[in-house]
Write a protein that binds this DNA or RNA. Structure first.
Lengths: 331, 331
DNA sequence: ATGAAAGCGCTAACAT
DNA sequence: ATGTTAGCGCTTTCAT
């Protein structure tokens, strides 16, 4: 209760300068005589003065904080993205306000507006697609928005991705060598990212002269349990291999196959998409598209800093490279 | 460039009231005549006015944001905690500024002070222990701090945990039935949480008349690779079972055993501590202490809200219940 | 029930 | 190189 917090004014008085000078010192403005700078710096340490970021934000109209909207931070895929974002954000002195959206379009809009109220300097959006409702909000907001790991066909915002179509093509091509019936397991096909994957899948089938069969296409929620549950249907479909768009789902499928005594890869080949730590944890370890998840986050944050500073960006739609890693779930 | 953002002043003018009244309406102050309230509300929607949270924060000295310090958000254990924190935070209208500390004491202090600069209303600290340097900062800051999933013997701050000693005792007791040499694998033993676990381990040995053997104690970093690497040493030690304090480490150990043809649980029993999704993903699935990770986060955030509002809290050191779940890695 | 006015702690012209 | 002075958009006494 004793001493209230030290303000720039206290420092100014103690150092016999104006608050403007203190402000200059704090912000590294070169227009300060080295001697006064030193004097001010001394007082600052002596008084243990810490600038109030909120006041600064109000005066400067820059909050040096970024909003991150994420479906579920507990999901490894997203938390790895978040890590990439945070590392770069810290590098550029931004803080992150992170909120879960549960992938709920309504909640997404709500948290988006809340972030605007907090005067964030930019927003990174993670998820599966940009809903129309959110698109409207983005349009009328005047801060830059970047998406990572999700396709926005309108290219309204900055985005960082890999070429999911080609990646899926490559992955499925690994399976067409020894299988006739290959299941395609993704999230909702309304999501543009899954459309792209499906196109890659079809292309790979065609190249190998295989027919596209509707009943081999499966939509599943992005979680372990969904993978566990979908196994039965997939087995019934007669498929002997599967391309899966999500590691948790793939792990669920794998374990369900294992628990039913179906040997992977001998009797069933499996390839997944995100190469999160999960792909290495399972036994057999999962072959996977090597999606640079961390980099997706890091690069998107870097892009956002440029957008915020109105720097020239040659392309605000960035495509990162990928590889395909064969582990033990494919022959 | 056209219309700049709408302020409380614009609303006041349009509604023919003072800004004070608008402020009252926005903040749900009952001292407003229903009719004027309605009029103001109308103008607010018509103008699409959104209160500026930064200005509000400066004037009211409450930012309605909470700082969260986390060693690594990409780690499932911590991201699950974060999810619990976020859900409760949202429930109480707080936003979360989340920063990774890498478990680096220096960085921890730096981000802590940065959070103070942003005028957060409280801080949730995650990690393995409270370092002395941080303890000093916490002491001179005047906002409440709560830790979750880590022991602070000084009880300087609010905390939410389980009884790690008893939990470890229970877990190890499962192993003493059929094993003479049981390895104890934790993080650094300086961390009070690991001290507590070690005590539980010793107690369980003693109860079964087994000798405590120094060479069965292992310290490992909290990650998958560390688990992979430590396997060899553990095998050499002659242990036929292990208690592991971290799921990623346990998964690494398990897979390393598997890859070397050592059968779990037939030839080696394993029990882990956090019951994160990882424990279910592995094959065999890992027996584990059922740590309510999500709840740890949720409850700590709830505790923090009480501390912030200076509500009565009967105990700011909260101990949550746990169970032990036997899966396939124990007989 | 409503309004007037004084800050909150800082930045950023604009002087000098 | 340094100081003066408006604000930034809101909350919050204090009047009325």
């Amino acid at each position: 209760m004793s001493k209230d917090s030290i303000t720039i004014y206290d420092v100014a008085r103690e150092a016999n300068v104006s608050m403007a000078t203190v402000s200059r010192v704090v912000n590294g403005n070169p227009n300060v005589k080295p001697l006064t700078r030193e004097r001010v710096l001394d007082v600052i340490t002596r008084l243990d003065y810490r600038p109030n970021a909120v006041a600064r934000g109000l005066a400067s109209k820059r909050s040096t904080t970024i909003g991150v909207i994420i479906p579920d931070i507990a999901n490894t895929y997203f938390s790895t993205l978040a890590r990439g974002i945070d590392d770069v954000a810290m590098m550029y002195k931004y803080d992150l306000i992170l909120t879960d959206s549960d992938g709920d379009p309504l909640k997404e809009v709500r948290v988006f507006n809340n972030l605007l109220a907090k005067q964030v300097d930019g927003i990174v959006l993670l998820g599966h697609r940009v809903t129309d409702a959110l698109r409207v909000e983005i349009a009328r907001s005047r801060i830059p928005v970047v998406v990572a790991g999700l396709l926005d066909p309108d290219q309204q915002v900055g985005s960082v991705n890999i070429d999911y179509g080609n990646a899926t093509f490559d992955a499925v091509s690994l399976l067409t060598k020894q299988n006739q019936k290959i299941a395609f397991v993704s999230g909702p096909l309304i999501d543009p990212i899954n459309e792209a994957r499906l196109a890659g899948y079809e292309k790979a089938l065609k190249k190998s002269g295989l027919d596209f069969q509707e009943h081999l296409i499966f939509e599943a929620n992005y979680n372990y349990k969904a993978g566990l549950n979908i196994a039965e249907k997939i087995i019934k479909s007669g498929a002997t291999a599967a391309f899966v768009a999500d590691d948790q789902v793939a792990a669920g499928l794998l374990n369900s196959l294992f628990d039913q005594g179906i040997k992977v890869p001998e009797e069933f080949e499996l390839i997944t998409s995100n190469d999160s730590i999960i792909a290495q944890l399972t036994r057999p370890a999962l072959s996977s598209i090597m999606l640079p998840i961390y980099d997706l986050g890091a690069v998107s944050m870097r892009l956002l800093t440029k957008l915020i500073n109105k720097e020239e960006v040659d392309k605000k739609t960035i495509i990162l490279p990928y590889k395909v890693k064969e582990r033990q779930s494919t022959k």
